[in-house]
Amino acid sequence: MEVFAEFLDHIENPQHRERMEEVLSWVMKKFPSLSPTLKWNQPMFTDHGTYIIGFSISKKHMAVSPEQTGVAHFSDEISKVGYDQTKEIVRIPWDRPVEYSLLEKMIEFNMMDKATCTTFWR
């Protein structure tokens, strides 16, 4: 979690900071083969040098970015759990629970889909 310490320290709302730390810790424990990194002031996880998933925050939500392909692939499931989405991100409101099963599917999908990817982005 040390790699994300500076990012987490800058989250003013203690509940938001706690939630973000919880999610980042969960990813690290569930997917120990992923490399945690901080790029463009956003926590993200990579596999063999390619982007798998990233996170950011705003006042109203935590944003999860499994890239455009990941959002499109899970669009129906994202809607079913009641999260808003754009082409690139999924918005998890601070007052809603994190659907870890969906997050797990997005990460697994990107790991499999990008298994032979040789670039950072698709």
Rank of each mutant, 00 (worst) to 15 (best):
F4S: 01
F4H: 08
E6C: 02
F7R: 11
F7N: 03
L8I: 10
D9I: 00
H10N: 15
H10P: 00
I11Y: 13
P14I: 13
R17H: 06
R19L: 13
M20R: 05
M20D: 05
M20Q: 07
E21P: 00
E21C: 04
V23A: 10
V23C: 07
L24V: 08
S25N: 14
S25G: 14
W26I: 02
V27P: 01
F31R: 10
L34G: 03
S35M: 09
S35I: 14
P36F: 09
P36T: 10
T37N: 06
L38K: 03
L38V: 12
K39C: 02
W40H: 12
N41Y: 13
Q42L: 14
P43S: 09
P43R: 05
M44W: 00
M44A: 04
I53K: 06
I53V: 14
I53Y: 07
G54S: 14
I57R: 10
I57F: 07
K59G: 09
K60T: 10
H61T: 01
H61S: 12
A63P: 00
A63N: 13
V64T: 07
P66L: 07
T69C: 02
G70C: 06
G70P: 02
V71S: 02
V71C: 06
A72D: 13
H73E: 12
F74C: 04
D76A: 15
E77I: 04
I78G: 05
S79T: 15
V81N: 03
Y83T: 09
Q85F: 15
Q85T: 09
Q85V: 01
K87S: 05
K87Y: 02
I89M: 08
R91D: 03
P93N: 07
W94I: 03
D95Y: 08
D95K: 10
R96D: 07
V98G: 00
Y100A: 06
S101G: 10
S101E: 14
L102Y: 04
L103A: 06
L103S: 01
I107S: 00
I107E: 03
E108R: 15
M112G: 01
T116F: 01
T116R: 04
T116W: 02
C117M: 10
T118C: 03
T119E: 05
F120D: 03
W121L: 11
W121E: 05
R122C: 00
R122M: 01
